[in-house]
Design a protein around this nucleic acid. Structure first.
Length: 306
DNA sequence: TGGAATTCAAGCTCACAATC
DNA sequence: GATTGTGAGCTTGAATTCCA
């Protein structure tokens, strides 16, 4: 049985997250790096051709043919890391918009040829650097993986079907549209998650005998607009109540933002103070729900695995 | 009044659903 | 089967507000 929810909150407060958490590292080269390089090379070659044709004042129909070819490659799967693609952002637009607008694409390409140096080099390290700058977008899944690893190391089995979940005593499942969806939760347990955000799917279902813990995990390193909404979502989960005593919710937050929220908060940071007070209030009012960081979660799993 | 905190707005990827 | 649309989850930078 888990202990009082404030116990795990205290442990989380006393054991801040490390600045560098290997669970969220994306060290390997992008698996499709070669494909990216190939597409960028093709874009550069066509750009050089267009530039040459323009310099030689070739027939506009011929040039147009190359613009169309360039547009085609620009819209292909692995072409999103080219310099031309980055330049699009410098022209007050996005690749997403430009991919649907050939005329604007042509305008921007002309401007690019005029204002940037073009060569045919596509260094692997540069392409990987652009891909690295986007690695943060993979963190959602890495967080789930981290928690499942902690659970499986303590003897929980990761299950892929409801049949398996019902059969195993201690197991964990990841929410998904196909198997562990919100509607299937209703079919199997007769409960409906009452989060404000309609259709909101949580991350993990943890089963410990007759108890079910529904967990939402977030990884935040910095504050800001969207992050406040993320934290609000976690706080809202703390306040959820099901009619059944055997259902609990866990809000999991790691990353250095968690340290700021749980550590010593500056008096001036009213927003954070408010968030912290709300968490503490909800934890006191709703003993079935939990707020943890990595250390708090590990302690929690240690207690329920017994 | 300057720096810190907060808010606002936007971007990108991935996975999946819906539509053509 | 291909294309288009949508949502989740994160980061970033600029603008605005707050306060010692």
């Amino acid at each position: 049985m888990p202990k009082d929810n404030l116990h795990y909150f205290e442990i989380s407060k006393d054991n801040p997250e490390p600045h560098l958490d290997e669970s969220y590292f994306v060290i390997d080269n992008h698996p499709k790096l070669k494909e990216h390089i190939k597409a960028i090379k093709e874009i550069k070659e066509i750009l050089i051709t267009i530039k040459k044709l323009q310099e030689n004042k070739e027939d506009i129909v011929v040039i147009e043919k190359y613009f169309k070819k360039l547009f085609e490659v620009f819209n292909s799967t692995y072409a999103n890391c080219s310099e031309l693609g980055c330049f699009v952002n410098a022209c007050d637009t996005t690749r997403d918009l430009i991919q649907k607008d050939f005329n604007s694409f042509k305008e921007i390409t002309k401007l690019y040829i005029k204002s940037r140096k073009i060569n045919d080099k596509v260094p692997e390290s540069w392409v990987q650097a652009i891909l690295d700058s986007n690695s943060s977008r993979k963190k959602g899944e890495l967080g789930e993986r981290k928690l499942v690893k902690i659970l499986t190391e303590k003897g929980f089995i990761e299950v892929k079907s409801w049949e398996e979940l019902h059969r195993k005593k201690k197991c964990v499942a990841r929410f998904s549209r196909e198997v562990f969806s919100n509607s299937s939760l209703k079919d199997n347990f007769g409960i409906k998650i009452k989060a404000k955000k309609q259709g909101k799917m949580l991350d993990l279902i943890i089963k410990d005998g007759k108890k079910i813990f529904l967990l939402e995990a977030k990884h935040l390193n910095v504050g800001g607009g969207e992050q406040d909404k993320q934290v609000s979502e976690l706080i809202e989960i703390l306040n959820l109540k099901e009619g059944r005593n055997d259902f609990c919710y866990i809000s999991f937050l790691d990353g250095t933002y968690s340290n700021r929220l749980l550590g010593e908060i500056q008096k001036r940071s009213k927003k954070m103070l408010k968030q912290r007070k709300e968490i503490e209030k909800f934890l006191k009012n709703n003993k079935r729900n939990f707020w943890v960081n990595t250390a708090g979660f590990v302690e929690f799993v240690n207690d329920i695995k017994k």
